[in-house]
Nucleic acid binder design. Structure first.
Length: 944
RNA sequence: GGGCGAUUGGCUCAGCGGGAGAGCGCCUCGUUCACACCGAGGAGGUCACUGGUUCGAUCCCAGUAUCGCCCACCA
């Protein structure tokens, strides 16, 4: 853009072209790239790595918006800000995608063989994986593309093997025969958290084992597993079965004799008090079996097909259930059936298949010491969770966690770095791809749980296990931003592995992040979960196309408060789009009127009150938005800035500035209220010191700051407007307008490096970051706003068109604090000077000033009386309330002084209102029949 | 079965011991030279219910109802 062009804006913001142009320019300029060697204090966030199979959905859009806002703000504050991008290989999910692909050619992964299949997955990744990375550009994510990582790239694989070996050597990884969760469709083991429990309808069947006096009735929801029963268990103190303990009963259908054992785990109150024991197919039974040295009889293969010899062999587990039941029924073994019987059943969180408890040899992480350390880091405050309530969930989990099954019977993932000798013994454990020298070595065929590598993400992406510059500069990361639904899967595990991997550091430096900022899930306008089947999903790319990235981001951020869900709808994003346009036009207006951004503010003595008012408000808003940002209150930041920009800057300040802007630009006698300000001096060499000049600078200053405050959430439109306004290179690298931007206060609150970082970025080049507070100006403009609103209400009630000019006298304004604002008031209210024939036909009393209006048609007495009656009733109610309080001795004795004082003020104000309104009622011309002024007022109160 | 949270205007939500708020929607008016993706004005709520604490409760406590979420190896 040329200098002339950059001050011309079209009347509407068109995001499309701006966004791609700006993003590419930022990336090309290297603004996203962090430099570990820079002397600036670090601020780092690692992306929650999206699945390589994924595409950008609305949940990512929320997460990324919040992260990007944090990073952009810190960058402007002078931090060495890093947002590190990357992806997760997503073991099961990715393998499933490619398996489906080859299934189209009628092939299974076994047809290809392991090596070819894995090769095929890599090819898939290269061509169709990672679509999300391109989509992140559309959102405006300021990620450092030079540091992009993938959980299966060389460095991360080495990190995985390294920590595996360390854990193994420390006795924290072991291999054992256990009952694990097995998905018969994915044909792999799952960890506890990869299983979703859902209430399923089953049936509870009571079956008689044995005959005659020595028989016992057991209840089960899974009759088919009886084929693998190796005992019946009863409670040791249960008198009903005491005589049977130690004997055996005959198992129906198979005829096997199985022992009756006594085990305290059995609940004598449930069912018959006797339970069948199937050690190979139920985790509880497995434990009972261990205690009593029972054999574990496996009756199903890895697909869930019955392998027990007999008539049921070859049946799927769900076919076997009715078949076994029918056979039992035929033998008269079924004593009772209860159906439907609701109970919780586990499902694979990847494919929904009912999980089968399966006895198998797997690798486990002994989590207890790791989980304890992870809990302690939060307990002792090294890591803070936002919102704090979520910490309870975190503790529940880390304090009572089962060992973590980490082996998966898949091909896509980090192969377990263990080699077995010819006899099957573990003889070597990674790292390194090569087997030990000699013959007969065989690597474990399984891969590691995807979450095993994700758990290392904060340190592995920064270079661990190597002692890299990035690791030194950016670990611990500053904050982890993610949805609460992933607290257990990922966050807690990063805590465990991060602390373990970095344990050579002092405890405060070993944590993977200092803050955990949890946000909620995105829901539809009715608070319902988004799902494809409900058809209520929102595609963020569609919104970006139609409303712009900034509108999409603002909508999501506006709804985000710590830990709670975000409801969005097209109405919200429309509103956000409108807000972008509002900013656009406010800046456009400023440019059309010659606004400039000053190096320093003009002398406050030269400023109109309105300027001091808006600067005072800007200062308050800036401080408040900084505080909210530090607390991850994104919704409140957005709300605050939205209302400041729209209600205060646009609706009032721009309107108040209009008369001054149309004044002379050359130095001369200041116009309007500025006449009361100190005369133009030579103090500011760059300043024109006319009312118009001062206003142009203040307007430019306010917009400069406002755009910067909004930039973290709305990067594109603010960039476009700011460069047009200032001619600067980029708002991205402009200094943050915080009061003493980036100084120790802000840093301490942000919890960045311990020890604090003082004076980051300094005051910036304009050196005007100090607070500008002016309570008198705020009070004065507040008074003006109330007066104008009151008169507008009158005009509206009287059916006067908003634009209609009305001759008026502002009686009694002389000597009041509003006297200097008469010009503004007249312009805002469309009041003209009274002509020769002026006769007041109506008046409004507000702020101690009587506005006498000459309305052409006179006033509508009835409408006015109705309104006044209503006002009077409200004022009386107010006076009554406050008066009653002040008449209460206990209140006077016990309430704090400021509350009492405030109540007094309320009472006085209410009395003044009553007097004013009564006066106006009395002054109303008697129109219509009836001597009813007082009566109608009374009625109004009575009704209220 | 445990735990947590919610219940505020038509909708989605802020507020959380001393005067009930916002956005959208709704009604009225408006071609004022930034913006109709706009401006001005307005209507609309006994803050789920019942008790308690308090000078004072939407806000604190207890209970009830309804809804939601998380965790869970009782067949």
């Amino acid at each position: 853009m040329t200098d002339a062009e950059h001050r011309q804006l079209p009347p509407q913001y068109a995001p499309g072209e701006v966004e791609t142009r700006r993003y590419e320019a930022w990336a090309a300029a290297g603004y996203f790239t962090a430099n570990a060697a820079s002397g600036k204090p670090p601020y780092s966030i690692v992306i929650p790595p999206p699945n390589v199979t994924g595409s950008l959905h609305i949940g990512h859009a929320l997460d990324h918006t919040l992260i990007d806002a944090l990073v952009r703000r810190r960058r402007m504050q002078g931090y060495n800000a890093l947002w590190l991008p990357g992806m997760d290989h997503a073991g099961i999910a990715t393998q499933n995608v490619v398996e489906r692909e080859i299934a189209a050619d009628g092939l299974s992964r076994h047809d290809l063989g392991r090596e070819a299949f894995v090769e095929r997955v890599w090819r898939w990744k290269a061509s169709s994986g990672g679509a999300i990375l391109g989509q992140m550009r559309r959102l405006g994510d300021s990620v450092d593309w030079t540091r992009e990582r993938f959980t299966m790239d060389e460095g991360l694989s080495r990190a995985v093997q390294t920590i595996f070996k360390r854990l193994y050597d420390d006795g924290l990884i072991y291999r054992a025969q256990r009952i694990i969760n097995w998905c018969p469709r994915c044909m792999t083991a799952l960890s506890d958290i990869e299983v979703d429990h859902a209430e399923d309808e089953g049936e509870l069947v009571s079956v008689r084992y044995g005959d005659g006096d020595d028989s016992v009735v057991v209840a089960t929801t899974r009759v088919e597993t009886m084929l693998g029963d190796t005992a019946v268990a009863v409670h040791p103190d249960d008198p009903r079965y005491a005589r049977l303990v130690g004997t055996s009963v005959q198992l129906p259908l198979t005829g096997r004799a199985i022992p009756v054992v006594a085990d305290p785990h059995v609940d004598p109150e449930f069912g018959t008090g006797a339970v069948k024991v199937t050690p190979a197919h139920d985790p509880d039974d497995f434990e009972i079996g261990r205690r009593h040295d029972l054999p574990a009889l496996v009756i199903m293969d890895e697909r869930g097909v019955i392998t027990a010899h007999g008539p049921f062999e070859g049946l799927d587990r769900f076919e076997a259930r009715p078949a076994v039941l029918a056979a039992l029924r035929q033998q008269g073994r079924v004593v009772a059936e209860r159906r439907p019987y609701l109970h919780a059943v586990g499902h694979c969180d990847r494919c929904g298949t009912t999980v089968e408890p399966r006895l198998s040899l797997q690798w486990f992480v002994r989590v207890e010491p790791l989980a304890k350390a992870a809990g302690d880091a939060v307990r002792d405050g090294r890591v803070r969770i936002s919102p704090p309530e979520m910490a309870a969930r975190y503790f529940d989990w880390v304090d009572d966690m089962h060992d973590w099954c980490i082996s998966r019977q898949l091909w896509w993932g980090h192969r377990i770095p263990v080699w077995y000798g010819p006899a099957g013994e573990v003889v070597a454990v990674g790292p390194g791809e090569d087997p030990p020298s000699g013959e007969g070595w065989r690597q474990d065929p399984d891969v590691l749980d995807t979450w095993f590598s994700s758990a290392l993400w904060p340190c592995s992406t920064l270079g661990w296990p190597d002692d890299t510059e990035d690791l030194a500069a950016f670990y611990p990361t500053s904050v982890l931003v993610t949805a609460y639904d992933i607290l257990f899967f990922w966050v807690a595990r990063m805590m465990m592995f991060g602390l373990y991997a970095m344990s050579q550091r002092e405890p405060a430096q070993a944590v993977p992040f200092r803050d955990i900022a949890l946000h909620g899930l995105v829901r539809d306008q009715h608070g319902k979960k988004m799902s494809k089947s409900l058809g209520n999903t929102v595609d963020p790319l569609d919104w970006i196309d139609r409303f712009g990235a900034d509108a999409t981001r603002f909508t999501l951020a506006r709804g985000a408060s710590p830990g709670s869900d975000v409801a969005v709808s097209e109405e919200w994003v429309t509103g956000s789009r409108n807000f972008c346009n509002k900013l656009w036009n406010a800046t456009r207006f400023a440019l059309l009127n010659g606004a400039t951004v000053p190096r320093a503010l003009p002398d406050p003595g030269q400023m109109p009150t309105a300027a001091r008012w808006i600067l005072s408000r800007l200062s308050a808003v800036t401080a408040e938005s900084d505080q909210l940002f530090e607390r991850y209150e994104f919704g409140k930041v957005c709300e605050l800035l939205y209302h400041f920009a729209w209600d205060e800057v646009c609706d009032w300040y721009l309107e108040l500035a209009k008369p001054a802007l149309s004044g002379p630009a050359e130095p001369g006698p200041p116009a309007g209220e500025a006449g009361s300000a100190s005369p133009a001096g030579e103090a500011g060499p760059a300043s024109t010191q006319t009312a118009a000049g001062v206003t142009r600078e203040v307007l430019g200053y306010v917009l400069d700051r406002l755009l910067k405050l909004l930039h973290p959430v709305m990067p594109f439109v603010t960039e476009e407007l700011w460069t047009a306004l200032t001619g600067g290179d980029s708002i991205m690298i402009a200094p943050w307008p915080g009061e003493g931007a980036g100084t120790a206060g802000g840093v301490a609150a942000g919890g960045v490096a311990a020890g604090g970082v003082a004076a980051v970025g300094g005051e910036g080049r304009d050196g005007t970051a100090a607070a500008f507070r002016d309570a008198a100006a705020e009070a004065e403009i507040g008074s003006l706003m109330r007066l104008v609103t009151e008169v507008r209400r009158f005009r509206s009630d009287q059916g006067l068109r908003p634009g209609q000019q009305v001759p008026a006298v502002l009686a009694g304004i002389g000597g009041t604090r509003l006297a200097p604002h008469e010009g503004s008031i007249r312009s805002l209210l469309r009041l003209t000077a009274p002509g020769d024939s002026f006769t007041a036909t109506a008046s409004v009393l507000a702020e101690g000033i009587t506005v006498e209006l000459d309305t052409a048609a006179g006033i509508d007495v009835a409408a006015e009386r109705r309104r006044l009656d209503k006002d009077l009733a409200a004022a009386r109610k107010e006076a009554d309330q406050a008066g009653r309080k002040l008449g209460n001795e206990s209140f006077l004795a016990k309430a704090p002084a400021d509350v009492v004082a405030k109540t007094r003020e309320r009472l006085e104000a209410a009395h003044a209102d009553i007097e004013r309104i009564s006066g106006r009622l009395a002054a109303l011309p008697a129109a219509g029949p009836g001597p009813a002024d007082a009566g109608s007022a009374e009625k109004g109160q009575g009704d209220g």
